[in-house]
Amino acid sequence: MPQNPARDVYPTIDISLANQALSLWTHPGAQPVIYPVSTALNGAGERNGSGCTPRGNHYIRAMVGGDQPLNTVFVGRRPTGEILTPELAARYPERDWILTRILWLCGCEPGRNRLGQVDSFRRFIYIHGTPDTEPMGIPQSHGCIRMRNDQVAELFRQVRPGTPVSIT
């Protein structure tokens, strides 16, 4: 069972790259809600252009899509008006789908995941939905943290901008 580090802010999110899991801590003393995720195929790393998932302390800086239906397609953090269907997915098999909700992360550690060539926010690192056909529990993303659409929508309802996110 994951352990929540001593924190005085709730909710809190911990993401384990080794376990490919996101733990949501809603209040002191509660057991976390654990969701399977998929992080970067290229592993952990902070450099811009690396395709890696950045480590360290972050927070949710922006939340996008709360009024959209499940499987809404986003490009540039804006809904395209499309809902992902098997037919749409088949038409664009190489597309890196960003679906349902976006939790845009900002690093808290200058030189590690904030500012310069290691800035998570400028790298557009998100927690977001992905097609339900994509596997969870194994690294496959281009750097973001992918989740099931119903689960990212559930997570979205329980957090707010400023929610701490630790990636280890």
Rank of each mutant, 00 (worst) to 15 (best):
N48T: 13
G49W: 05
G51S: 07
G51Q: 06
C52Y: 02
P54L: 03
P54D: 01
R55Y: 07
N57P: 01
I60H: 09
I60G: 03
V64C: 00
P69E: 05
L70F: 09
L70D: 08
N71C: 03
N71P: 03
T72A: 13
V73G: 15
G81W: 15
G81L: 04
L84Q: 05
T85W: 12
A89I: 11
A89W: 10
A90C: 11
E94Q: 14
R95C: 07
W97A: 00
I102D: 00
W104V: 00
W104F: 10
C106P: 03
C108T: 13
G111W: 03
L115F: 14
Q117R: 12
V118Y: 14
D119S: 09
S120M: 13
R123E: 02
R123N: 04
I125Q: 00
I125H: 04
I125F: 06
I125P: 01
Y126E: 01
Y126D: 01
H128M: 03
G129H: 05
T130M: 14
T130I: 10
T130S: 07
D132F: 05
D132G: 13
T133Q: 01
P135D: 04
G137H: 09
G137S: 00
I138D: 01
H142R: 11
I145P: 02
R148T: 05
R148Q: 12
V152R: 05
E154A: 13
L155I: 09
R160H: 15
P164R: 08
